[in-house]
Design a protein around this nucleic acid. Structure first.
Length: 179
DNA sequence: CCCTGATTCGC
DNA sequence: GCGAATCAGG
C-alpha cells in the first residue's frame, strides 16, 4: 500500500457515504475506516454536503430557517446485554442473542475493512474496551480486541455488529479468530 | 463521564 | 481540502 490510509480515496469516500447514510455515527465510521478521527469524518461529510442525513424535511420555501443545529441521529437499536465476564473469568466467545422481537432487523451489513485495533491482554483490558476474544483463550497469546467499546456494551462497534447479528441471519460464519 | 454532530480556522 | 479544537447539546 502506498497510501498510509489517511487520505480520502474514492473507496474511502464511498464507504464514508455508505456508512453515513446508513446511520452510523461519525466516530463509528472513523473507527471502521481507521487512521481517521471522527472530526475528520464529520469534516469530510460536511464538505461533501452529506450532513443532515436522513432528515431532510424541507417544507416549502419561505423562511424555513428553522433549526440548522440539532441533528437527528439514527434510531439506536435496542441493545440486549450479552453474557459478560463479571469476575476474572475470561469471556469465551461472543454469543448471538436470540431474536428479541419479531422485528425485521434488516441490518445486513457487508464486510468492511477491519482496522487493526490494539489488542490487549486481560491485564490491560479495562472498562470501555472491546472484549472481543481473539485467539485461543487457553493460550497465553490470547488477546482482546481492546478497541473503544460502545458505552454499555462489551464490544467495539465492529464486533458489536458481529456479535449482535440475529441468529437467523448469521448463517455464514467467517473466520472470526484472526490472529 | 460518556457520547453526538456543527462550526471555526490555521494549515 | 483537511481536520484539530472548539462549541453546543444529549
Amino acid at each position: 500500500m502506498i497510501d498510509a490510509g489517511a487520505t480520502w480515496t474514492d473507496e474511502r469516500v464511498e464507504l464514508l457515504k455508505k456508512l453515513w447514510t446508513d446511520g452510523l455515527s461519525a466516530s463509528q465510521i472513523a473507527a471502521e475506516l481507521g487512521n481517521v478521527t471522527r472530526n475528520a469524518v464529520i469534516g469530510k461529510v460536511h464538505r461533501l454536503g452529506l450532513s443532515g442525513r436522513a432528515k431532510d424535511a424541507k417544507p416549502n420555501g419561505s423562511a424555513a430557517a428553522a433549526r440548522p443545529r440539532k441533528a437527528t441521529r439514527a434510531p439506536s437499536a435496542p441493545a440486549p446485554i450479552p453474557p459478560q465476564p463479571h469476575n476474572n473469568n475470561v469471556v469465551i466467545a461472543p454469543i448471538s442473542l436470540q431474536p428479541v422481537t419479531q422485528e425485521p432487523a434488516v441490518f445486513v451489513e457487508e464486510d468492511m475493512a477491519v482496522p487493526v485495533s490494539e489488542r490487549v491482554t486481560i491485564m490491560d483490558l479495562r472498562e470501555s474496551m472491546c472484549r472481543w476474544p481473539m485467539g485461543d483463550p487457553t493460550k497465553p497469546e490470547f488477546r482482546f480486541c481492546g478497541a473503544r467499546s460502545i458505552t454499555g456494551l462489551p464490544y467495539c462497534t465492529h464486533h458489536a455488529r458481529i456479535a449482535y447479528q440475529p441468529v437467523a441471519d448469521r448463517k455464514r460464519d467467517r473466520k472470526l479468530a484472526r490472529a
